[in-house]
Simulated assay, not measured.
Amino acid sequence: MEIISTTHAAKQVDNNLLVFTHLSQLLTYVTGFGGFVVPLILWLVKKDQIVGMDEHGKSIINFQITMFLIALISVPGIFLFGLGILSLIYVGIVSLVVPIVNAVRASNGEAPSYFSTIKFI
């Protein structure tokens, strides 16, 4: 007698949701906090259902936390020789360009590539 378990559903391949997850980081420029909350919710809900969502979601959350910490450290750095302004410009440019590049990578089925990111998760 053979028992077949049907509790584990097959994961779906949904590159469009991965692209949307990467592009949802740009909500930071509109709402101020949506760029962290929306990808976090999508990752927590879909990480077991979509192929690659766990890897992409962890990369996005690590990237958002790292950019937040750099920006937070930059504010007092403004008073020290004005170097904080350079790092705030870096955060602004990188937070705009890198999610778009990774959205294109996700649409092609490639792994995300977030450079200068601290691995928290």
Rank of each mutant, 00 (worst) to 15 (best):
residue 25 Q to I: 09
residue 101 V to L: 12
residue 76 P to C: 12
residue 105 R to Q: 12
residue 85 I to G: 11
residue 14 D to P: 01
residue 14 D to I: 03
residue 98 V to C: 00
residue 3 I to S: 11
residue 31 T to P: 02
residue 100 I to W: 02
residue 39 P to A: 14
residue 61 I to Y: 10
residue 69 L to W: 05
residue 56 H to R: 15
residue 92 G to I: 04
residue 101 V to Y: 01
residue 109 G to N: 13
residue 115 F to H: 07
residue 35 G to S: 14
residue 75 V to G: 02
residue 121 I to S: 07
residue 58 K to C: 06
residue 111 A to C: 08
residue 60 I to L: 08
residue 43 W to D: 05
residue 114 Y to W: 04
residue 100 I to S: 06
residue 55 E to V: 13
residue 38 V to Q: 08
residue 78 I to L: 09
residue 103 A to N: 07
residue 97 V to I: 11
residue 67 M to A: 07
residue 77 G to M: 10
residue 49 Q to R: 14
residue 72 L to F: 09
residue 91 V to S: 05
residue 115 F to Q: 15
residue 61 I to C: 06
residue 29 Y to E: 05
residue 29 Y to V: 04
residue 102 N to M: 10
residue 105 R to W: 04
residue 61 I to V: 15
residue 35 G to T: 14
residue 91 V to L: 11
residue 3 I to E: 12
residue 98 V to E: 10
residue 113 S to R: 13
residue 103 A to Y: 01
residue 99 P to D: 15
residue 21 T to K: 04
residue 44 L to W: 00
residue 34 G to H: 07
residue 89 I to K: 02
residue 28 T to P: 07
residue 35 G to P: 00
residue 25 Q to G: 14
residue 70 I to W: 04
residue 50 I to G: 05
residue 4 I to E: 15
residue 95 S to W: 03
residue 6 T to L: 09
residue 59 S to A: 13
